[in-house]
Design a protein around this nucleic acid. Sequence first.
DNA 1: TTTAATACTTGATTTCAGTCAATGAATGGC
DNA 2: GCCATTCATTGACTGAAATCAAGTATTAAA
Lengths: 226, 226
Amino acid sequence: MGLSPDDVERLDSIVKRNRPLHRGDHLFREGDGFRFLYVVTTGSVKTYTPSEDGGEQVLGFHLPGEIIGLDAIQSERHCCSARVLETSAICEIPFDRLEELSSFIPSLQHQMYRLLSREIGQDTEMLMLLAKKNAEERLATFLLSISGRLRKRGFSATDFYLSMSRHEIGNYLGLAVETVSRLFTRFQDDGLLHVERKHIQLIDLVRLEAMVNGTVNGGPNHRHWK
Amino acid sequence: MGLSPDDVERLDSIVKRNRPLHRGDHLFREGDGFRFLYVVTTGSVKTYTPSEDGGEQVLGFHLPGEIIGLDAIQSERHCCSARVLETSAICEIPFDRLEELSSFIPSLQHQMYRLLSREIGQDTEMLMLLAKKNAEERLATFLLSISGRLRKRGFSATDFYLSMSRHEIGNYLGLAVETVSRLFTRFQDDGLLHVERKHIQLIDLVRLEAMVNGTVNGGPNHRHWK
DNA sequence: TTTAATACTTGATTTCAGTCAATGAATGGC
DNA sequence: GCCATTCATTGACTGAAATCAAGTATTAAA
């Protein structure tokens, strides 16, 4: 990332590695004061905004190497909750120390800007998914996203376990549970993947990619206003 | 913002004020190299991602005081296009100069982090709108968003002109033009607002607020999974 | 183990918003 | 000025996905 070994050490010295957390544990809750950024080392975390009546909107799933909490810098309060989906190891980074360090290390500052900017870009992707894609395009996009992120971390891109429930997937993608379930069945029938409960094996990545781009039925975006 | 008069002057010295731009002019296009952040002084701008076939996804409308281009820091390329909706004055800020300045002025650095973080929070709001709200909730949310942002800048919160077309509103909200049109008519029939082409007068802000929270038909979120 | 609770799947039905189609109003170009 | 084009509205119809409903599988608890 363009940091000198010295800088890396300084950065490393402020990172705290915590004992493992377990399924259901909260990293933080909406409204909590913001002090730390969190980085998933192993396992997975979901972020979500709870609503009064027990419902929720899932905002994202966070896999190893991914950072959580950037949205809280603004208000100095967490505006979502973060809950561990399976036994996970999470690092915490005190943001005030990181900020301080970043004004001494220009390349760290630059990385921070990039990190925040990337988060915006990812939200934009999600926004397009929700505004324009149909149910099957959404699920295909989701699966390939998980796949790609796992591959980047050295895990299998075609054989993995989903740590979240169908309900959570549907909530995240703006779909009903039943729709997600039906799509998994259909994808399997169509030979795109093999699914058995939370165990997913992607079979036809090419066709899934085509789906994501909405190029399944001859040519991109048959709806003219897309 | 916690900047000394001296700092403000330094910041001011790198900001360039450009001649007015006109309806249809581009600030930048997707793929352009990233050099500047833009701040709307007067007028309005839309950002959008064009797709091969001439379609587009509108990502946002930007009113006076709002900043454009933060999503491009990451890749050093603009990943959306920005087009002026009406005669507008736009400032440009060279990002490399701003970045440099921010490592000398901690409070500026802090503001930058907050600014980026706020953008993430706003995207999250939009994400929830698209994932969970129905058509009327979306349009009500949109109108109150515009209203609130205008008020913050000293304009009327209840009487304004929309600089974007129905088509663009629909595209932004994930709705068809016809749906937007029908909703405007219905809102007017219900005494929520008065609409005549692009001229909007909000009449019943209370009822609009209630709509945004989905509390129209007795209690929040009648759909259990929300 | 048995029971209870939760998660998942599948089918039948409904509904909200999209699509298609037609017309009218406003804007821009010549 | 007129004509062409784009924009907006309204109605009729359709369809994708939500809701409702029932049943099965899995996990957790006693």
